[in-house]
Amino acid sequence: MLSGISLGQYIPGDSLLHRLDPRTKVIGVLAAAASILAFANWQGLVLTALLTLIALLVSKLPLGIILGSLKSLWLLLVITFLLQAFLTPGTLLAVLGPLKISREGVFAAGEIVLRLALLILIAFLPTLTTPPIKLTAGLESIISPLQRLGVPAHELALMMTLALRFVPTLLQEAEVVISAQRSRGAGFTTGSPAKWARSLLPLFVPLFAGALRRADDLAVAMESRCYRGGANRTRMNALKFSAPDYVVIGVTLAVLAGVVALRFI
């Protein structure tokens, strides 16, 4: 089935992390990513890992969900590890046929996998703890200063909102169309490329027509509700920083500063 639990899907909760302003979480992730990717040496990495661990504990997310986000990308982690381990020259540890594993390789591979894993964990934290709609509002607010440079911040945010709203609906529709055509004996896999492309028509024509129909209906419904672009529009849930947000941003930036310091001093 197409609709199961998807990667990084919001898990409702009431932890400190859930209550933070979405902008705080975005800033936090950016700071952590910068530290992991650009600055951290191994001491810095340990510091960042510690901070991540604290964040995970505070979030009260079930362990299964957290590991799940790593598990889904395990192949990436394994391949990265193997490549690093095999391709780094140095003191030989073992030989597997034509492949040589060096001591330095194992260390380098461990480090890079740790970096990647940390990055994955941190990147999923905001999506796991924030309703998508709120995250969208946060992103809109962060990029809205760029509006003066001609970046259509409101339109981008609206597109994201609508995508969030309609992706599940369109997936459901795809499921129905596939089922319906299969009930008339359609096979979607056989034959030469030309035949194969032709066999997909019964699927894509209705899906495309359906998406257009929905888009049309939605545009009418939005206009009927007085929508006329971002100008003069207000928001019900105006975002507001509160005390915990300032504390979290402060701590995050302090850690980033610390990581940079560890690297360059």
Binding site: V176, A180, Q181, R182, S183, G185, A186, P202, P206
Partner: peptide, 27 residues
């Protein structure tokens, strides 16, 4: 599917051929 025909909700949304004839002939 040869012995069980299933007409979905709003089946008109699953039409795809250029003519009604070819669409009905699909099955």
């Amino acid at each position: 599917w040869r012995s069980v025909g299933l007409v979905f909700q709003q089946p008109e949304h699953q039409l795809f051929e250029e003519t009604v004839f070819t669409d009905v002939a699909f099955g």
